[in-house]
Design a protein around this nucleic acid. Structure first.
Length: 467
RNA sequence: GGCCCCAUCGUCUAGAGGCCCAGGACACGGCCCUCUCAAGGCUGAAACACGGGUUCGAAUCCCGUUGGGGCCA
């Protein structure tokens, strides 16, 4: 029987949740949910100078927004590295006692000189191991690495990766000031938390043999590893701020739906046949770490927006309304009090905006009267003749019964015939008068949603503007 | 610099020796639909980095080159 699956995501609260981190978290989460295991959240906050509570809060918030719920982790105690120093100290002592680690008193200057000398000889610098058998009791604690042989990391994505011990240093576990190093904390944490599978970014692959040797020195079973490729910018360099938005929060603020971001991130480097859209349940069912690609993937915002649009098009009306409301408010507008009317408006908008923010932009006229009319269209349509037509339309609309889209369309078609003009002529004229623009949802839907009173008021205002 | 990882359309990918003169999706072009804009339907252009092997046969296996990325400094 395979051991119970326990995976973890370990962000540093030195910034917001990066989309690359979010994808790593997602893969861990999916792996846990697929196998009925546990997903653990651990906070790597040993870098006290750059870690803040605000960042931690923002990360937890982003995780919750993505609905990546954790089975263990904050706010429970013991899931922050700053709360675990006793554990690191204890394990360091064990290694010393077992003779697997030793103190090194070499000064930085000495090491530096050796490094320069090695460079001068065109050799790779590697710590000499001078202090190995001195039996020192202070200084930096180093792990004793075998001189010969290799360590093979059997990666679930990359397969076996061999590292020659001659390339590895006796690396430092604890600095001379007593603080444990990152790689050592990670090993101790993963071991003490019973992590079975370490799914993390590709940037950690090179450090893995050092960690494996540390597990072995500690006489602990080595977990399985899966190194996921990194997310790249358009220039194939690691995705960073200079490429634009990188944080989950930024996408949230841009009006991306969490299910769309999850779907996009899952599909970035992972696939299941030709399928593009996956519900969360399908993702959990289909996800297999073995299907994750070993090559880096460029973050394509255009495709994210396409996916977001797909979700916007199919989202339940009430949920869409709830999701859009903060964006309406943020634009300084107010959604209609009548929830059904609001949903009706959104139904005409959802095909026309790829993000929640765009929905508001494209449907702005629903929430406020046009402040101005498209100048080019106005020059063409708001003529004395246009004014007259608007007047005729106004009279008919005042009597239209019922004031519904199909009825209004019939009315307009009859009117066009009576005026011997094309439907488009009076439809565009009306659109400009009511929305101020030349593009909008079907104009009859718009009029019906706005209601008779508002429609007539806007037609009057438009006629007023024609002088 | 040393070590490690990676390499299919512009992008995300399918492909685990013959099903592939390479399939899907985004983006892009055309046509249709149409009160505008969208959405939708149909359709087009677009890739196995290069060079050697192995094999009857290679996008798929091996070696090298080139290019990109990462880690250690």
């Amino acid at each position: 029987m395979p051991a119970k699956v326990r995976v973890r995501f370990a962000p540093s609260p030195t910034g917001h949740l990066h989309v690359g981190g979010a994808r790593t978290a997602l893969f861990n989460w999916l792996y846990a949910r697929h196998h009925g295991g546990a997903f653990i959240l651990r906070i790597e906050d040993t870098d006290r100078s750059r870690s803040t509570e605000e960042n931690l809060g923002a990360i937890l918030d982003a995780m919750r927004w993505l609905e990546l719920d954790w089975d263990e982790g904050p706010p429970a105690a013991g899931y922050r590295q700053t709360e675990r120093f006793d554990l690191y100290r204890e394990h360091a002592q064990r290694l010393v006692a077992a003779g697997r680690a030793y103190y090194c008193a070499c000064s930085p200057e000495q090491l530096d000189a050796e490094r320069k000398a090695a460079e001068a000889r065109k050799e790779t610098f590697r710590y000499s191991g001078r202090c190995r058998d001195l039996g020192l009791t202070t200084g930096a604690l180093r792990l004793r690495i075998p001189d010969e042989g290799t360590t093979v990391v059997d990666d679930m994505i990359h397969g076996p990766v061999t590292f020659d011990h001659r390339q590895l240093d006796d690396w430092i576990l604890v600095r001379s000031d007593g603080t444990p190093t990152y790689n050592f904390c990670v090993v101790v944490d993963d071991v003490t938390m019973g992590i079975s599978h370490v799914i993390r970014g590709n940037d950690h692959l090179s450090n893995t043999p050092k960690q494996v040797l540390c597990y072995e020195a500690l006489d602990y079973p080595v977990p399985a590893f899966a190194h996921v490729s990194m997310i790249l910018g358009a220039d194939r360099a690691r995705l960073s701020k200079r490429h634009g938005a990188t944080s989950v929060q930024a996408y949230r603020e841009a009006g991306i739906l969490p299910e769309a971001l999850v779907n996009y991130l899952a599909r970035l480097g992972w696939s299941s046949g030709d399928q593009e859209i996956f519900s969360r349940a399908e993702l959990i069912e289909r996800f297999d770490i073995k299907d994750v690609s070993s090559s880096g993937a460029i973050f394509d915002q255009t495709k994210l927006e396409w996916l977001n649009h797909e979700y916007i098009k199919t989202l339940d009306g009430a949920r869409l309304a709830a999701a859009v409301t903060p964006f309406v408010t943020a634009a300084g507008l107010t959604p209609p009090a009548d929830a059904r009317r609001f949903v009706g408006m959104l139904d005409t908008l959802r095909e026309r905006g790829k993000t929640l923010a765009e929905l508001v932009e494209v449907g702005r006229f629903y929430f406020e009267r046009p402040r101005e009319y498209d100048p080019r269209a106005a020059a063409k349509l708001f003529t004395p003749e246009g004014r007259e037509r608007l007047g005729a339309l106004r009279e008919r609309l005042a009597r239209a019964e019922p004031f519904t889209a199909p009825a209004l369309e019939a009315l307009y078609r009859a009117t066009a015939d009576a005026m011997t003009v094309k439907l488009g002529d009076i439809a565009q004229l009306t659109r400009l008068a009511v929305t101020g623009r030349t593009a909008s949802p079907p104009i009859f839907d718009v009029l019906a949603l706005l209601g008779r009173e508002e429609t007539l008021a806007r037609l009057d205002a438009a006629r007023e503007s024609i002088r």
